[in-house]
Amino acid sequence: MKPAAVKYARAGDVQEAVALLSEHGTDAKVLAGGQSLVPLMNFRLASPSILIDINRVNELAYVREDNGSLLIGAMTRQRDVETSPVVAAAVPLLPQALHHVGHVTNRNRGTVGGSVAHADPASELPALVTGLAGELTVEGPKGQRTIAAEDFFVGTFTTAMEYDEVLTAVRLPRLPAGTGVAVEELARRHGDFAIVAVMAAVHLAPDGSVDLVRLAASGVDSVPLRLHSAEAVLAGAQPTADAIAAAAATVAASVNPTGDVHAPASYRRDMAQLLVKRAVGAAIERIGVSA
């Protein structure tokens, strides 16, 4: 399990990374935290001709509030995001979701941008970004562009980025104060990719009705899903058990899971529905409780 021969170039900044990608074409791979790419290389399932290491592009490692949203540099380590008070205040769902990403050692190296760009439909960050209607900023030879999360994830391990583009930032809308959040994840073991994970953010109006609901699921389709139908049932409604059940009931039609050695498609479909129920319930229970 030794990687095949590969060249290596270290980019000092984003422009250099883009230039290297343009120069080397589709056989080049960006090396971020390496927690997904390097295993594939060790199995020789990935054999890029050159690695473009962006680990020292320090300008991409930051977390900041920006005009009502949370902006995270693509090379920010997952562990730094998980433990950031700025993140906890703005998008408390994010640290909770990160808690399920591998283990601390993986999150020490793994980056937010790396996980998003890898676009594994079973992993947590792509689902979270999708569910919260995040935006991804990418930079290429023609400059910057911003892609909505639901347009960014195109298929399993496939994104809307061009080969010569680098993901530079993830923007997430700030959740209003008092939003309850919950991650319900079903995995064979803690830290594994989810069989199914559902993330929920719920905010209630003074009259107790739902005035904001965001629901995302991973492991249920070739792309991470925002569960629009379930959100629509809850939006504006009183979050009664019946309403939550009705929202969950829509999930079966929203998801399109495939089976594998860990669980058949039918199980994933059922569990998505169950976890929506649980996640919404848990989110509501935690309203007003800080992350």
Partner: peptide, 16 residues
């Protein structure tokens, strides 16, 4: 063989 890695052949961890 569909479980030829530690991603799919699941050894128990301290939490299990």
């Amino acid at each position: 063989l569909k479980t030829a890695s530690f991603m799919d052949y699941l050894l128990p961890t301290a939490m299990d």
